[in-house]
Amino acid sequence: MILELKKTEFHKCKDLLYAQGQLEPKAVVEGVNPGRIFVDDIVSPASGLIWLGNNDGFFFIGNERNEVFNSELNLFIDTLIIPEARKVGLTCFEGIGNHNKWDETILKVFENRNLGSWNQRVYTLQKNDYIGNCELTIQEDYNIVKISETLFENSDKSIKNIKFLHSKILEVWSSPERFFSKGIGYSVIYKNKIVSICFSGFVVDNFHCIDIETLEEYQGKKLAQKGALTFVEDCLRNNFIPYWDCMESNKPSIAVAEKLGFRKVFNYIGYEFMFE
């Protein structure tokens, strides 16, 4: 039977994590970012499934050849995961292996579903690799502002769409206080409106996973690039390592990362199927 761990028990999964794997499952297991963990054995888990707190996918961790766990996955997803996922507006299951040996297992376990896939790239930036001569200029009426508690609280009501910032931070972090104690971020503001943000989505040790979003009507103005550049420079000043995870098909995102000096450290495959 697949059972859910209490948050106080997440530490039992530390040994199941692949050291060179993605940042997100590590952040959940270490209790930095919110999420849920389901395992084959409460006392001594060998395999598990992590549901990210921002509902942005599931990570398979541990032993990919655990037949007892694998044989129960489809029923578990149908009876527990899908009903709960529908409640938060999800229409599909997105699953990722914490190491590439899970790929074969995922294909086998879900062979009777209409399984699709996509490719991801992960980049990191070391201080010595940073290309600091790519200063970007944006129009004068756009201002880069650090995401501070004062900005977040917006007591003077100066930011008209503060809910945009609130929703992005609280999508990934359990509270504003948690974000301000662990992460950093920057907003691009135009006429009392936040139009682009770049912030630490997940954090493990000194690695900061970059989360960027620009309002659709303001895209194409290099605002995200400027926000990312400012974020990266802040990271490097504080000896943080920026971590950039993007779809292989997202050529503009890859171009920005490589222009700044990010180096690809690994690829992985994501899988998805629609709920019936």
Rank of each mutant, 00 (worst) to 15 (best):
I144Y: 02
T105S: 14
R113T: 02
K259E: 12
Y130N: 04
A224V: 01
S174Y: 04
S196I: 00
S155K: 09
Q22Y: 15
N267V: 08
S175I: 01
G132P: 14
R86F: 05
R65N: 14
K222T: 02
F59E: 13
M274F: 07
F273W: 06
I144R: 01
V28N: 10
I184V: 09
E276S: 14
F266E: 07
Y186F: 15
K87R: 14
L49P: 10
Y190T: 02
K259Q: 14
I189K: 01
Y268N: 13
Y123D: 05
H166S: 00
C92Y: 08
V172K: 15
I194T: 00
W244V: 06
I184D: 06
G35Y: 12
D41W: 03
L170I: 02
L151K: 03
Y271R: 05
L107Q: 15
I37C: 10
D156V: 05
E111G: 07
N133M: 07
H11D: 15
T137W: 05
C209M: 13
S196L: 06
I189M: 02
N54D: 15
V203W: 05
T137L: 08
Q22F: 15
L107I: 03
E217T: 04
S200T: 04
Y268L: 12
S148A: 02
D56I: 05
S155N: 11
V204F: 15
Y186H: 13
R121E: 09
G220V: 04
N63P: 02
F60M: 06
F164S: 03
C92F: 07
R113H: 14
E84D: 08
D103C: 11
I37V: 13
W51F: 08
R65Y: 14
G183V: 01
K168N: 01
G57P: 11
Y243A: 07
Y268E: 10
S158D: 09
L165E: 01
L107K: 15
L229G: 04
L49I: 10
L125P: 06
S175K: 03
K222E: 05
N114V: 00
S175D: 03
R86I: 10
S249C: 10
W51V: 01
Q22P: 13
Y186N: 11
F10G: 06
L136R: 08
V122K: 12
N206R: 15
W173K: 09
A228S: 07
V172W: 11
N133G: 05
L125A: 04
S181R: 12
F152M: 06
V203S: 03
D156L: 13
K168C: 00
S47R: 11
L16N: 05
N192E: 14
E177N: 12
T124E: 00
L229M: 04
N70G: 11
K6V: 11
